[in-house]
Computed example of a mutant assay.
Amino acid sequence: MSAPAPPWSHLRAVLFDLDGTLIDSAQDLGRAANAMRVARGLAPLPMARYRPHGGSGARGMLAQAFATAPGRPDYDALKQEFLDRYEGLMYDNTRAFAGIEAELAGLAAAGLAWGIVTNKAERFALPLVAALRLGAATVVCGDTTACAKPHPAPLREAARRLGVAPRACLYVGDDERDVIAGRAAGMATAVAAWGYLGAEADIGRWNADAQLRAPGSLLKLLGLA
């Protein structure tokens, strides 16, 4: 009688969120928001105030810096200014989290394809991924498909590009919407617990298939290390 297959033996590809999962971009996001505060005669906020909201991009940064949100009269103009400022400094301090590059190399060595599915716009995500030389087989952004996460369309598009069925993919992210999107796409899901989880996050309630405490633990989960 043959031994039972390992629980992850069906996987052919791993997809990752970007900010807070593969890369630490919170400082540059926060600096863009603080530059806007300083331009208005306001004191900069501590980076620790911005960090938990790094995965929410402009929305998260502007909520902290100016207590505004989509739908408010001032939001659209502030968002445009934020994006323009961020574009000018997004390479300054952003790096892959320690251990990520070795983990990606381990996936490639095991013959697993990997890609990125992010809500970051192509304007920022594509040049940033290229500058960091992450080597993703595909990058699907927040404006690549008609809907962004938590809609499953971006994840399904990434699987299509890789030529892999969604059920043979694992999606790794640091936000509950990543788990929601992954499940809706028919993928297994894992939480990157080192990411921008937010102060109120209870990742045990997200019902992901796995929780990853640090970069490198994915290889152990998959039996590759």
Rank of each mutant, 00 (worst) to 15 (best):
61 M>G: 02
61 M>F: 06
63 A>L: 10
63 A>V: 02
63 A>S: 12
63 A>Q: 11
64 Q>M: 11
64 Q>F: 03
65 A>N: 08
66 F>R: 00
68 T>N: 06
68 T>E: 08
68 T>H: 05
69 A>E: 14
70 P>F: 07
70 P>M: 07
70 P>R: 08
72 R>I: 00
75 Y>C: 03
75 Y>V: 04
75 Y>K: 06
76 D>Q: 12
77 A>D: 15
77 A>V: 13
77 A>C: 11
78 L>S: 06
79 K>E: 15
80 Q>H: 13
80 Q>V: 12
80 Q>D: 13
81 E>D: 15
81 E>N: 14
81 E>L: 15
81 E>S: 15
82 F>I: 05
82 F>D: 01
82 F>W: 04
83 L>M: 15
83 L>A: 11
83 L>W: 08
84 D>T: 13
84 D>H: 14
84 D>V: 14
85 R>N: 05
85 R>H: 08
86 Y>L: 03
86 Y>F: 07
86 Y>A: 01
88 G>R: 15
89 L>K: 14
90 M>T: 09
91 Y>T: 15
91 Y>Q: 15
92 D>K: 14
92 D>L: 15
93 N>R: 09
93 N>Q: 12
94 T>F: 07
97 F>M: 08
97 F>E: 05
98 A>Y: 03
99 G>W: 10
99 G>K: 08
100 I>M: 00
103 E>D: 00
105 A>L: 05
106 G>I: 00
107 L>S: 08
107 L>V: 08
107 L>K: 06
107 L>M: 10
107 L>Y: 09
108 A>S: 11
108 A>D: 05
108 A>E: 06
110 A>H: 01
110 A>V: 00
111 G>I: 01
111 G>F: 01
112 L>D: 01
113 A>M: 02
116 I>N: 05
116 I>H: 07
116 I>W: 10
117 V>I: 09
119 N>P: 09
119 N>H: 10
120 K>Y: 00
121 A>C: 12
122 E>M: 12
122 E>Q: 14
122 E>S: 14
124 F>Q: 10
124 F>S: 11
125 A>F: 01
126 L>P: 00
127 P>D: 13
128 L>E: 02
128 L>F: 04
130 A>W: 02
130 A>G: 07
131 A>L: 03
131 A>W: 03
132 L>A: 08
132 L>K: 03
132 L>G: 03
133 R>T: 13
134 L>W: 04
135 G>S: 04
135 G>A: 04
